[in-house]
Write a protein that binds this DNA or RNA. Structure first.
Lengths: 345, 345
DNA sequence: GACTCACCCCAAAGCGCTTTGGACGCGGTC
DNA sequence: GACCGCGTCCAAAGCGCTTTGGGGTGAGTC
């Protein structure tokens, strides 16, 4: 069933049918109703390719997932973010185009996406410190929203980010208030922008009390469970082991907890953990007293925000570049307690 | 830069340029080279919408993610599956269209996807026991591959699945061999096809030894960490608690482990766990001796298989409906050991 | 009754590509 | 020398939609 068939069926021109369905005022309400009903009955949906060829709009948003050959990891955070964004796209009539790209083909992929005309805008995931993609995309000239920020980039761009520095400042303050001084930072990969900001918040809290962080107690890696486990084991065998852990992902925190348990230490008594919690649907840190004390910020909600922003930019290109900084809640759970004096002390 | 521009630049017709780029034999090698070079230099890429309007092929594959309003969960398994499929799509020049759909709009969405002409084929996720989508899609007449199977469906369809029954039969046998008799099954949602097959494997192993399963020791829910924790706590306070747990997801297994730890039981000594392991990149169960004894089957690999299959079906519709049954490996880890005699016994 | 003005509707162009159905020139065959 | 076949190339139609620029009809105005 195509437009032509439907118009012939109704004894109307294609113009009128098209206008009726798209809500143009040049058509009487009676006709519009008649057309709408017929379209409904015959299950007519305009061919999106023909439509977007005619309008110049793709009605699709691209998500480009960088897949580093070193890691080959599909970020779970991305999953929830996408789900949030997907809801918004669906509600506003956009499709979501997912592209998984090896690191080395990034530039080519972005340029192609543009010239191929497959999308109206895109989301940039996992920005690094100095993010070349921003420059590239400004050059290409396509609307985009960055999930996160790029500290070392002075070009303008739209973004949605969580206040990483502040969240980790507060989390560190909590641990310091509890008397902890040897705090390990189990962070994400060192070149990721969020990891840098979190470390900054961590250091800020120490500095504000005239304390110094021990660089030996900071680790940065892809945030897997295994990494949390391995890093924690390494920390615990040190001569002066940490009494608290500040962790960048709840998945990694599970690994930290495992290593702590295996070492015979009791969580929340002998050792404390504060973790960041993206509120992933399959790893909810909830309950009367949540498992982990955490800085919580729903990444799914961030996805919704980013999608709204981007669609707004696409439909109204004249407006400026929006930003949005989301704050994390500090949730008190079972994994923290005052620093215990060691038997040896 | 569009075809017309490029052809004028080269003093050739659009026909010739198009043919040169698409490898048709009617054009001389010299011209083809000239065209290819010019296209490269000027970064020409054909507009995909125009092309697919002309060819009738969308060059895109759809993934429809059902989002039940009850749960609002974005399956982590899906993430890795998608990554695997995405690799293949990219390599074969297809785009991936992701649609997140509330349960109640499924049918409408599938039909629209078809008539809108946005995709050439699609992947069906998370089939249930009696899967109406198969009937629907056969009716619509669009190529698709199911990730999993639908036991109660006698219509033909293409699928990629893991041998759930066999994997859980083997896992159960292992636990029975170790002397366990009170084994809890911490399964996925009861109406999911994979959960039914896993339970069948579980029961088969018991039946083969003339033993009976205790229906009180079987749970079925969305496979979150929290669920594993809650279910296990409930099992452990029973008068005759299980000595082993067979779990359907490594995420849930983490919750099971947590509850066991909190109860003061030692994993692999007092209590055993065998879990299914989809080999998720962020939750790898590896190392010299993996954390969990597990039935492992890479869901990412399944994604690759499904994508290949589907593209084959799209490009060669005459061929039959392919199937593929992947076997899981049984990995021996730290979480299993022989059944301990209780002090009370 | 002629004129204006809404109001509804239509024919046709155009979006950027592929593909059909030739056209043209050149060497080889009888 | 007429004919054929082959290798190269081209003009134009068509994919299904939106949108421009009218065109007809009837009510309202003087």
């Amino acid at each position: 069933m195509k437009l032509k068939d439907l118009s012939e069926l109704l004894n109307l021109s294609q113009t009128t049918v098209s206008r009726a369905l798209n809500g143009y005022p040049e058509v009487s309400e009676a006709t519009r109703r008649r057309v709408r009903e017929a379209a409904e009955i015959h299950g007519y949906h305009p061919n999106v390719r023909a439509r977007s060829l005619a309008t110049g709009r793709a009605m699709a948003i691209g998500h480009v997932i960088p897949l580093s050959s070193r890691h080959e990891m599909m970020n779970p955070v991305f999953t929830d973010f996408t789900a949030g964004a997907g809801e918004v796209y669906a509600a506003r009539g956009y499709d979501m185009l997912l592209t998984i790209v090896p690191d080395n083909l990034q530039e080519q992929t972005y340029r192609e996406l543009r010239t191929k005309g497959a999308i109206d805008g895109l989301i940039v995931h996992s920005p690094k410190l100095a993010e070349q993609r921003i420059h590239l995309l400004n050059d290409i000239g396509i609307p985009y929203v960055v999930h996160g920020r790029a500290s070392d980039c002075d070009e303008p761009y739209a973004w949605v980010d969580m206040n990483n520095t502040h969240a980790f400042r507060r989390a560190t303050d909590l641990l310091l208030d509890l008397g902890h001084r040897r705090i390990a930072l189990v962070n994400g990969l060192g070149d990721m922008d969020f990891a840098i900001r979190r470390q900054a918040g961590f250091e800020e809290a120490f500095a504000a009390r005239g304390l110094e962080v021990d660089p030996e107690l900071m680790a940065g890696e892809e945030m897997t469970e295994m990494y949390g486990y391995d890093a924690t084991r390494a920390f615990l065998v040190r001569p002066d082991p940490p009494t608290a852990f500040l962790v960048s992902s709840i998945i990694t925190a599970l690994g930290v907890r495992r290593a702590i348990g295996e070492a015979g230490l009791r969580l929340g008594r002998d050792v404390s953990i504060v973790t960041h919690d993206d509120d992933l649907s399959y790893l909810q840190n909830r309950g009367d007293v949540p498992m982990f004390t955490a800085t919580r910020s729903s990444v799914r909600e961030a996805g919704r925000h980013a999608a709204h922003m981007l669609i707004e930019m696409v439909e109204n290109p004249a407006a400026g570049l929006p930003h949005e900084l989301l704050e994390a809640e500090l949730i008190l759970g079972q994994s923290t307690g005052p620093r215990m004096q060691r038997a040896a002390e």
